[in-house]
Nucleic acid binder design. Sequence first.
RNA 1: GCGAAAGUAGCUCAGCUGGUAGAGCGCGACCUUGCCAAGGUCGAGGUCGCGGGUUCGAACCCCGUCUUUCGCUCCA
Length: 493
Amino acid sequence: MENKKQDTASALKDIISHAKEYGFVFPSSDIYDGLQAVYDYGQNGVELKNNLKTVWYKAMTMLNDNVVGIDAAIFMHPLTWKASGHVDSFNDPMIDNKDSKKRYRADTLLEERAAALEDEGKADEARAIMQAMAKGLDAGDLEAVRQLIIDQQIKCPVSGTANWTEVRQFNLMFSTQVGAVSEDASLIYLRPETAQGIFVNFLNVQKSGRMKIPFGIAQIGKAFRNEIVARNFIFRMREFEQMEMQFFVRPGTEMEWYETWKQTRMKFHQAIGLPADSLKFHDHDKLAHYANAAVDIEYKFPFGFKEMEGIHSRTDFDLRSHQELSRKKQQYFDPEINENYIPYVVETSVGADRLFLAILCNAYTEETVGEGDQEKQRIYLNFHPALAPVKVAVLPLVKKDGLAEKAQELVNKIKFAFHTTYDEGGAIGKRYTRQDLIGTPYCVVVDYQTMEDETVTIRDRNTMQQERISIADLKEKIGYAVSMERIFEKLLQ
RNA sequence: GCGAAAGUAGCUCAGCUGGUAGAGCGCGACCUUGCCAAGGUCGAGGUCGCGGGUUCGAACCCCGUCUUUCGCUCCA
């Protein structure tokens, strides 16, 4: 058990090192020692991530003729977050007990105290507490709130002590100001989820696109949460990217669609190369304020099975809430049943960065090749060819005798069809390894025979086997293998 | 947030009781070679995370701080 923990810890460390060394993920602002829970994608990481986003977006919008995309702004009207429940849910003054390590809402502790006093017939005292607390909170004077808790000798119900930390305002939303003059400026939030951009555009899309229920709106975009604790590399970041689809359905049919999307999404993860036994559903015991059913798709990360995607039946919570606050009807007239209603919503929401991490962890392969004295450790990234950052590396066997020029010529022939790289430095074996380490599925070598008969060898990353083929067939052969169509075919099965 | 460990070259790390910085790999140029991390020569690259303190002198001791990893905690 002890060993296993060490193994999994080092597995993640190896992947983090590899990600940095080979240009996938760098700590943000690295030269300034990084910024907690913020990361940048490097030259290979951005290719992989873009491929993931593309395959998701196409799987949503091209494979389903009733799903369309949008790209909503990160800034939204502040009332959006009032309607969604984020403003109320995430503005709590919190306090920790140092002995029990339990965290409480400071206002709740004081309210309970006041209620207890009232029961004892000390209504005046109770009122004084509530007034002092309100004054402190309104003024943002958290130290006063803490002092109040200490003065009242409120103890932690678990540890029974009054050993409290400072009171801190926990707000998961980042805020900033819109407007150049600060007095005129209004507080605005960086969106903590992309979903609301879809909800507020529901009618715009439905009317302009003449969409009929059921239909979906898909979106990829950044979201921001001021996480208290961020852990596990890019698993929980302050700035992250979501790939979301909100599917609008007739009330009463939501559970069928919930089931359908559950299965569809699981199939997707398997189609892009994640093994079935590393994926599982995890039903939520405790439902969020907006949901009547919720399940996570979890992936077996080196630190355990963790949420990668959430599928929620959100009822009409969001649209109804927006309707109330905006006073604009969010209804759909269903011609089939001749009725107006606020649609129910089934949401699929996957973290692009989490999916990236899952794909990277899954791809990282250490294997022993050769036997006896020839035995060697080999590391490669086993990406689905359609996801790999670089599809093919063209390598001249040697630099001289015109082989380099011939190889360059070949690069120019294929580089517009798929991401191609050229490498002439060092021994051929080293160059194969360089490509293995970033997960390039194919290496094409120009050798002396090429000069005579226009054939090259093509080497497969996983098997290391080579095959000699004609240059004329190269584009088609590689193009077929690296196309996302192979993934879509699996989804349609 | 609490507790633990770590931070030295691009990477992995060594560096003794405090005495002005090392290896392997990688990287660049050239020579040799030519199908799975080849050999040789030369070279670039570090105010030892950062800031203080102690000391004649600090990578090393002390304090603070930042970052990362791990365990709790938290996660609409």
